Simulated scan of single mutants.
Amino acid sequence: MQKIKVLIVDDSAFMRKLIQDFLSEHPSIEVIGTARNGEDALKKIKVLSPDVVTMDVEMPVLNGLDALQKIMNDHPVPVLMLSSTTKQGAENTMQAMSLGAIDFIAKPSGAISLDLYKVKEELIQKVISASKANLTQLSRDSRGDYAKRTTTPSEDCSKIERKGPISGTRKKTISKKLICIGTSTGGPRALQQVVTRLPKNIDVPVFVVQHMPAGFTKSLADRLNSLSECIVKEAVDGEIAERGTIYIAPGGFHLTVKQMGTSLIIQLDDVTPPRGGHRPSVDVMFESISHINEYSKIAVIMTGMGSDGSQGLIELKKTGVVTAIAESQETSIVYGMPKAAVATKLVDEVQNVEKIAEAILRYI
């Protein structure tokens, strides 16, 4: 069996050794080298051709963000960032994701995490996941196509022409609608592609689950809000969902939606155990929305490992008027969650990520 070749980049010798020891324990991972800063990393990537790079953010000579930008321009390879949970650390992480990092690990404490063992299994699994990333899409994003494609919102909703029926089994039109989106690895970039293309006059609420730990979803929401015509915010427990607003589930909390009279109420829960290792979980959100009557729903599943969202999609389709859209294999950074959704045979459209917003608007 061919092993996953990993290069570890960190200015701390202690952290380099700790990460190397953790990864080397797994039979399918081989640490082929370490680097003490971004400049050192660039040289070693050219010589060693790793399958995955783990990268610290704060380093001397050339920091992780600048190094990442050069890596993705010159020699695209899946990069996994190690990030602190401070506000600045979270903002740097969101910037790293926009520059091409495939995913990140939140350090449990500080720059030198003596308790890094707490995320050992997550680190191993994310390295394995990163090794399976769609390098063609990473390369396309790194050339700047991604940034260029996220600057123009879609047309006014009223001007979108819907192509074809929503579903042959649907007998009636429901005026009230909502959108629910689930994504994981590669999701921040996919969300940016979709959210920045939704016009400010979109007359529905949008609920989003992005697999991400506590402390990072606020920075994700703030970044998307700064780039979008719509309001994007981290969801708050008990708030009434407003049309034209996009709600991001906070890391560490399941997000559910409940109908009370004519309003939709957001509920957050950090007590119910993770589903499939995830809290927030796409399945949990989708299942809660399946109980909402008098609304038609557009459910979107995009890039990510695993199958979160598929069981929830089944429940959605059992109970109401639902249009399901999955991201294509071509543009998914990791074609796991969309593939599992397509396997249910309940997906109405498969679209490249840059076409998903247009597809959503056709059904609105």
Rank of each mutant, 00 (worst) to 15 (best):
K5D: 12
M15C: 13
F22N: 09
P27R: 15
S28E: 06
A41V: 00
L48D: 07
D56A: 08
G64T: 07
L65M: 07
Q69E: 14
P76T: 00
N92M: 09
M94K: 07
I112R: 15
V119I: 15
K120N: 03
Q125V: 03
K126H: 14
S129W: 14
K132W: 06
K132I: 02
L135E: 02
T136H: 09
L138H: 08
Y146V: 00
A147S: 13
T151A: 04
T151Q: 14
T151K: 14
S154H: 12
S158C: 01
K159C: 03
I160L: 04
I166T: 10
R170K: 15
K176N: 13
K176L: 02
I179F: 09
T183N: 10
A190M: 06
I202K: 07
D203A: 12
D203F: 02
V208W: 02
A221H: 13
N225G: 06
K233E: 04
E234D: 11
A235D: 12
V236A: 01
G238E: 01
I240E: 00
I240T: 13
A241K: 15
A241D: 02
A241Y: 11
G252N: 03
F253Y: 10
K258L: 07
Q259S: 14
M260E: 03
T262N: 09
L264N: 01
I265K: 13
I266N: 04
I266M: 11
V282F: 06
V284M: 13
M285F: 14
F286N: 00
E287D: 14
I292K: 03
N293M: 05
K297Y: 09
G304P: 12
G306R: 00
G309T: 09
E315H: 12
L316R: 02
K317I: 06
G320N: 05
I325S: 01
I325R: 01
E330L: 12
S332E: 00
V334H: 04
K339T: 11
A340I: 01
A340F: 08
A341G: 14
D348S: 13
V353L: 00
E358L: 01
R362E: 15
